[in-house]
Design a protein around this nucleic acid. Structure first.
Length: 102
DNA sequence: AGTCGAGCGCGCA
DNA sequence: TGCGCGCTCGACT
């Protein structure tokens, strides 16, 4: 089980209607490679099981994009799940934020 | 408060 | 083999 596999697995555990951050994932993996987390999502082999649109930056920004997906689509998906998105940021981010069980 | 740079793990050239 | 990236944080201005 490589680093990216763990990242993908964790990302897949995010409940519907919730979001998490790259930071949370990195911390869960006991690493400081926050960038590698995003990189893993980018290089994921199974985009369908990876709701990367639920993974955002720690300040609530959507971040970049998700593979072939553009930021617009990402925003749309988030709103569809009940998450308010203001511009390219999560409106009630602190409320919808999901933390992995330690 | 805003900007800059460093550091991590993996992928691609 | 080496550099960069979908980030984050600390330090300096």
């Amino acid at each position: 089980m490589g680093f990216n596999e763990e990242v993908l697995r964790l990302a897949g555990k995010i409940p519907k209607g919730k979001v998490t951050t790259y930071k949370e994932i990195a911390k869960k993996l006991k690493t400081k490679a926050y960038r590698a987390v995003g990189n893993a999502l980018n290089a994921n082999k199974q985009p369908v099981i990876i709701p990367c649109h639920r993974v955002v930056k720690s300040d609530g920004s959507l971040g970049g994009y998700c593979g072939v997906m553009n930021s617009k689509k990402k925003k749309f998906l988030l709103e569809k799940e009940g998450i308010k998105v203001k511009g390219n940021k999560i409106a009630d981010f602190s409320k919808k934020r999901f933390r992995f069980k330690k």
